[in-house]
Amino acid sequence: MNEYELKVYQEVEEWKRKISRRSGMINRLSKKAQWKINGWIPEKVHEVLTESIKAMVKATLFGSQATTTKDQARGLTLSERDELARRKIAAYQKTAVVEGAGTGAGGILLGLADFPLLLTIKMKFLFEAASVYGFNTKEYEERLFILHVFQLAFSSNEIRRTTLADIENWESRKHDLVEMDWRKFQQEYRDYIDLAKLFQLVPGIGAIVGAYANNNLLKQLGETAMNSYRLRLLQKSPEL
């Protein structure tokens, strides 16, 4: 392991410790409130939401697969891959900020349109990140990994810990993880972003809130994706 890889290894270990820490009291209370609200929602509504998110994500995965530039990592060192990933994160943050400000400025109706638009931006970024780090998203397991990275970025403590364990042991576990738990996937994602995005629906402040929230959500996703792929590369000692 060279000097840069050792530095990255230490950064990844610190990132793992950070995301494994228990959430603050406010976040825990918010999660409990969301659990109560979810309990009041009729089962039929949960089923419709789950199928809607599943269809939306699968359509986005298909579109992202078709438009992602392949072989972006060829001949690059880990340092160069990391630098390219940071440029991608910055670019997608700018796109998300513009989208959030635009839909937020439109009040409730355009604010609701933000959900699928932002989801598309996030998934497209994850396909780009996979390509930057040299993983082939034509393989089903790699598209499944992308969904686990997404879930790791936007979930509660308990789900985050189990998802991190799957990512850390991906090579041994990927063949057992045949399908996502879509109910858990959509509920965790909705619960995570509800508070961040709630005020985006308010005319007058929606644009500011939308831009700020989207910037932070892409930053969170970028950090999660970078470290998830770095973790895999360092575990299998790739030829860089």
Rank of each mutant, 00 (worst) to 15 (best):
residue 188 E to Y: 06
residue 168 E to S: 07
residue 40 W to F: 05
residue 152 L to A: 02
residue 163 T to C: 00
residue 62 F to Y: 11
residue 239 E to V: 14
residue 190 R to M: 13
residue 16 K to G: 07
residue 209 V to C: 01
residue 235 Q to S: 13
residue 223 E to N: 11
residue 172 S to W: 00
residue 130 A to C: 07
residue 44 K to T: 05
residue 94 K to P: 01
residue 103 T to G: 04
residue 155 S to Q: 05
residue 20 S to D: 04
residue 79 S to L: 15
residue 121 I to K: 00
residue 65 Q to A: 10
residue 233 L to Q: 13
residue 165 A to D: 12
residue 215 N to A: 12
residue 152 L to T: 03
residue 185 F to H: 14
residue 131 S to H: 12
residue 177 L to Q: 09
residue 124 K to P: 04
residue 91 A to K: 14
residue 158 E to L: 09
residue 211 A to V: 06
residue 66 A to R: 15
residue 212 Y to V: 15
residue 191 D to G: 04
residue 107 G to M: 00
residue 75 G to Q: 01
residue 17 R to W: 10
residue 185 F to A: 05
residue 7 K to T: 12
residue 38 N to L: 02
residue 140 Y to F: 14
residue 42 P to Q: 07
residue 50 T to G: 04
residue 225 A to R: 03
residue 122 K to P: 02
residue 30 S to Y: 11
residue 62 F to E: 13
residue 2 N to C: 08
residue 116 P to F: 05
residue 17 R to M: 09
residue 5 E to N: 14
residue 6 L to A: 09
residue 121 I to C: 01
residue 233 L to S: 12
residue 122 K to W: 03
residue 213 A to W: 00
residue 180 M to V: 08
residue 52 S to R: 15
residue 82 D to Y: 09
residue 93 Q to V: 14
residue 201 L to H: 04
residue 164 L to D: 08
residue 97 V to I: 15
residue 107 G to W: 00
residue 61 L to T: 05
residue 84 L to C: 06
residue 218 L to G: 02
residue 88 K to S: 07
residue 68 T to I: 07
residue 39 G to Q: 01
residue 138 K to M: 08
residue 220 Q to D: 06
residue 69 T to S: 06
residue 108 I to Y: 02
residue 168 E to N: 00
residue 84 L to K: 12
residue 24 G to W: 01
residue 18 K to F: 05
residue 101 A to I: 03
residue 20 S to K: 00
residue 113 A to K: 07
residue 85 A to N: 11
residue 186 Q to N: 14
residue 112 L to S: 04
residue 142 E to L: 03
residue 145 F to Q: 08
residue 60 T to M: 13
residue 44 K to D: 05
residue 4 Y to D: 05
residue 56 M to G: 12
residue 178 V to E: 13
residue 83 E to D: 10
residue 28 R to K: 10
residue 116 P to V: 02
residue 63 G to L: 10
residue 37 I to A: 12
residue 235 Q to V: 07
residue 213 A to E: 01
residue 177 L to E: 07
residue 85 A to G: 11
residue 177 L to A: 06
residue 196 A to W: 01
residue 58 K to R: 13
residue 119 L to H: 04
residue 171 E to N: 15
residue 108 I to L: 15
residue 18 K to V: 10
residue 64 S to G: 13
residue 188 E to F: 06
residue 18 K to Y: 11
residue 54 K to Y: 10
residue 67 T to Y: 11
residue 171 E to R: 04
residue 208 I to M: 13
residue 44 K to Y: 08
residue 202 V to A: 05
residue 179 E to T: 04
residue 53 I to P: 03
residue 103 T to F: 11
residue 56 M to P: 03
residue 147 L to Y: 06
residue 156 S to D: 14
residue 145 F to C: 09
residue 88 K to G: 06
residue 25 M to R: 14
residue 191 D to A: 11
residue 68 T to A: 08
residue 184 K to N: 08
residue 84 L to V: 09
residue 201 L to R: 11
residue 2 N to M: 02
residue 93 Q to C: 08
residue 221 L to D: 03
residue 25 M to C: 02
residue 111 G to R: 04
residue 236 K to C: 09
residue 81 R to W: 07
residue 104 G to K: 02
residue 46 H to Q: 02
residue 5 E to Q: 15
residue 120 T to C: 08
residue 199 F to Q: 04
